[in-house]
Simulated scan of single mutants.
Amino acid sequence: MNRPRSGPREVLVEQAVGLLYRPLLLAALVVWYRGHNAPGGGFIAGLLAVAATASYALAFGGRAARARLPLAPERLAALGVAFGALAGLPAVCLGRPFLTHLGGELALGPLALPWSTVMLFDLGVMLCVWGGLAALVLALGRKS
C-alpha cells in the first residue's frame, strides 16, 4: 500500500494497527450483541469501534481512516439516530408506549438466538457514537 505521509513512517505501529483494526471491530460487535442481556452494549461498542478508527488514523492518516469507515462519519451518526428511533416503532404499532421493549428468540435450526428491539436501539447508539466521535477524531487530526 502506498500511503503518503508528511513525517517518518512508524512501521511497527502500522503493522500493529493493521493487525488489530478488524479484531477491535469484531470485539465491538460482540460487546454490542451481549449488551442487551449483560453490561455493555451500544455505547461501549461504539467506543471500541472509534478506538479502531482513531488508531488507524494515527498510524495511516485521516484519509485512510475515513476510507475504512462504512459511511462518512456524519452519515454513520445519522444512521445510528435513525436506528434508535426505529427501535421504538414496533411497540407503537402494537399500541404500546414508544421504546417499549419487545423480544423473543430466533430459531436457526438447533440454535435459538435471542433478539430484542433493544438490540436495534443499541446498534443505533453504537453507530451514533462511532460516527460522532470518528468525525471529532478526524477533524482534530486535520487541525494538527
Rank of each mutant, 00 (worst) to 15 (best):
R66L: 14
T100A: 14
P97I: 04
A78Q: 12
A67H: 09
G88L: 05
A72H: 13
R68W: 06
L89E: 05
F98G: 05
R66G: 09
P97R: 05
L69C: 13
A77H: 07
L99M: 08
A85F: 12
R63T: 14
F83E: 00
A57T: 02
L71E: 10
P90G: 03
L76C: 15
R66W: 04
R63W: 11
E74R: 15
R75K: 07
R96H: 11
V92M: 10
F83P: 00
Y56C: 00
A82E: 07
G88H: 04
L94E: 04
G80Q: 11
P73R: 12
E74I: 15
H101W: 09
A82F: 12
V81S: 10
G62N: 09
G61P: 03
P73S: 14
A78Y: 08
L71A: 15
A57Y: 02
L76E: 12
R75M: 10
A91P: 04
L99P: 02
G84Q: 11
L58K: 11
G88D: 01
V81W: 04
A59D: 01
L69I: 08
F60H: 03
H101M: 11
G88N: 06
A85Q: 06
G95K: 05
A77D: 08
G62L: 06
L69H: 11
C93H: 14
L94M: 10
F83H: 00
A67N: 10
A57L: 08
A91I: 03
A65M: 08
R75T: 04
H101E: 10
H101C: 07
F98C: 06
F60I: 00
L89Y: 07
G62H: 04
P97Y: 01
L79C: 12
V92C: 09
G84K: 09
R68V: 03
P70I: 12
G61D: 01
L71M: 15
R68Q: 14
A87R: 04
A72C: 13
L76H: 13
A85D: 03
R63P: 13
R75D: 01
P90L: 01
A57K: 05
A57P: 04
G88V: 03
A67L: 04
L86A: 15
L79E: 04
V81D: 06
T100V: 07
F83V: 00
L86F: 10
A65N: 08
A85M: 13
A72V: 13
L58N: 08
L58R: 13
F60W: 02
E74A: 15
H101L: 13
L58I: 09
A72P: 07
G80N: 12
L76A: 13
G80L: 13
A87S: 15
A67V: 00
G84Y: 10
P90K: 01
A78I: 10
